Amino acid sequence: MSAKVTLLSLGGTIFMSQDPAGGRARPDDGAGQRLLATVGGGVEIDSHPLANVSSSDVRPHHLAAVLAQARTAVDAGADGVVLTHGTDTLEETAFLLERYWDREAPLAVTGAMRPASDLGADGPANLRDAVRVATAPSARGLGVLIAFDGHAHLADRVTKASSRSLSAFVSDPSGPLAIIEQDDLRLLHHPLPRAARFPGAPPDRFPAVPVLAAGLDEDLALLDHLPPEQLKGLVIAGVGMGHVSPAAMPRLRRLLGAEIPVVVASRTWSGGTSTHHYAYPGSEVDLLEAGALMAGLLPAAKARLLLQSLLAAEAGPEQIREAFSVYAS
């Protein structure tokens, strides 16, 4: 009996075509059917295009539709689900889906760095590998996985590290979860237990949580023009292990005093934030003593989505603190 996989698509480069000069790639509705014809392996694929948009245009309502279709498919007997997606925000979509995916069957997310019309298109191989992940016995119970360039990555760890390379995605600090083989995954390490999940699906719109970047001569003065009542939360992409300038601290204390959660991530792609290495003004110790939270191993983009999901679920301060403690470093 052949395996069954439901393929959902939100578009992205994997379903784009270029102009005759090899540039200006745009969504191409015909690329999906041509791509499906390249996937073999005796797997029965049920395809459901949901949208054909760039990843910068994906919204929470798209992901709510993905979750609804994916749950229906698995409950009806599909062995797993594949989602095609643009790579620019693929890690964010995977992370957000992981917050809500509550089935044992794998949900594999993939895309491509080169358009479908390119002679060196990587979409066919990535899609084939995503189907293998969706049917892999070792992938069951692991949640949302990213299939890219022959490797499987955990949604909570993966990051797009290159805007051009075919090996665009890396996982910090553990490396990829597995090498994708024909019949199963070759696990390279055993993942930690999955974080607690939210019921249902994300709302159509999330609470307003901007991300501001710290840096040289950056005192977060923009906060002077953002009244606290207009913010539900704030994420800072801090320097080093999660630091801001001393001059930014009064502004952050003003928000924290108004009970607006402030989460500090590191703007470096590896290493994450600390809780104890430095204690000067604007350091992680100073921020923690003021009431801010550290994002740990989460980059700012994922920290924002986690905070937004928690706020949408009306989580209290202790619940928010506990949720971020899972990623402490």
Rank of each mutant, 00 (worst) to 15 (best):
S9T: 12
A279H: 10
G30D: 02
S9L: 02
M294Y: 02
L107K: 11
R103E: 09
D118G: 10
A73N: 12
G80V: 02
A315I: 06
G238W: 00
A303H: 07
V244W: 03
M241N: 15
H276G: 14
A155K: 06
V5F: 01
H189N: 08
A155F: 00
A121S: 15
G175Y: 00
V244E: 09
R304Q: 06
D102Q: 10
R59G: 10
L188P: 15
D217G: 10
D129T: 08
P173S: 11
L35C: 10
F198G: 13
L127A: 10
A73C: 09
S270Q: 13
D184N: 08
K232E: 13
A279G: 14
F15G: 14
V58G: 14
M241D: 12
R304N: 07
S163Q: 09
T159F: 01
A279V: 04
D46T: 15
S117A: 03
T159V: 12
D219N: 15
L297V: 12
V131K: 13
T6I: 05
A134E: 10
L305T: 13
T159C: 11
A237Q: 14
G123P: 06
G80E: 07
A303C: 04
L287H: 10
A328R: 15
I45Y: 06
Q18I: 00
V244C: 09
G291L: 01
G257I: 01
A248V: 03
R197P: 02
P173A: 04
D57M: 05
R103M: 01
R140W: 01
V326W: 05
L252P: 05
L154E: 13
D129Y: 00
A70V: 06
R114G: 07
P191G: 11
P210F: 00
P60A: 11
A3N: 10
H85Y: 04
G257T: 11
R251V: 02
G123F: 00
Q308W: 00
L212W: 07
L154G: 15
A78Q: 07
L192K: 14
L192I: 13
T6D: 11
A136I: 06
A68R: 14
L187D: 10
L127Y: 06
H151E: 08
A76T: 13
L96Y: 04
V66H: 08
P261K: 08
A70G: 15
P27H: 07
L142Q: 11
D88F: 00
T38P: 04
S270Y: 06
S274W: 00
K160I: 04
A51K: 08
P210H: 03
D19N: 14
S165C: 06
T89K: 06
S9V: 03
A125K: 08
A65I: 03
